[in-house]
Design a protein around this nucleic acid. Structure first.
Length: 214
DNA sequence: GGCCAGGACACCA
DNA sequence: TGGTGTCATGGC
């Protein structure tokens, strides 16, 4: 932990008091992760399986969650929300199903690439590294960290537009670099995936509320 | 009808 | 390294 962590923690407690728990800290227990079991979770990131979180992380790029939900519902209804089904589906079909999430041509292609990487590490019974995820075309830093945190329960703080806005608004930190923000939060907080997830969820909640009040 | 959303990438200087 | 264009839908 670093200097300034008191302020970061104080803001967390303030958000928690204001908005209550977002269940962003519902990460898969280690035992279940090892066994490949991913139980239904009342997480702020609604998903029934680990793979659904991975799919959501990609589809939500520059897209409202509302539209992502429509795309995921389409995939579910078509029985395509599994790595095997996605890999067997033609790109044109995939494009039709995920169309509501926008950028559907590139997302269909990238969803397949990500699914291939996901299946590979699953077969090898291990967790992907950040570098491995970043090597997949279409997976940037935010998407990689979202997957590591929310799908695998690893302590990677997610930096998104809301997080940057939050930092600027509270004069916490200012930079242009994603990794600077990530380091700032990770040095200011105890290394705890549950806390990271909950904090990020609260920041998003704050961001949406702040926008409504503009 | 315009703006924005839980980004990433290619291309250029 | 930094700036800009592109990808696209749906809600407000």
């Amino acid at each position: 932990m670093d200097r300034g962590s008191n302020r970061v923690l104080a803001l967390y407690r303030k958000l928690e008091t204001q908005y209550g728990p977002q269940y962003g800290n519902k990460v898969w227990p280690r035992k279940q992760r090892r066994a490949g079991i991913t139980p239904a979770s009342p997480c702020w990131w609604p998903a029934e399986t680990q793979y659904e979180i991975v799919v959501g992380a990609l589809l939500t790029q520059n897209t409202s969650w509302n539209n992502v939900e429509k795309a995921i519902a389409n995939l579910k209804a078509a029985g395509k929300l599994s790595p095997e089904a996605i890999l067997k589906t033609r790109n044109t079909k995939l494009e039709t199903l995920i169309r509501p999430s926008g950028f559907y041509r590139q997302k269909a292609e990238r969803l397949k690439l990500l699914t291939k990487a996901y299946s590979r590490v699953l077969r090898e019974k291990r967790i992907p590294t950040r570098e491995e995820l970043l090597a997949v075309k279409g997976v940037g830093k935010e998407t990689a960290d979202s997957i590591l945190l929310y799908a695998y329960g690893l302590p990677h703080f997610v930096i998104d537009a809301y997080t940057r806005r939050f930092c600027s608004h509270h004069r916490l930190f200012l930079s242009k670099e994603y990794d600077d923000y990530k380091r700032f939060f990770e040095r200011s907080l105890p290394r705890d995936a549950g806390l990271y997830g909950e904090y990020h969820a609260l920041i998003v909640r704050w961001g949406k509320k702040a926008k409504m009040n503009l």
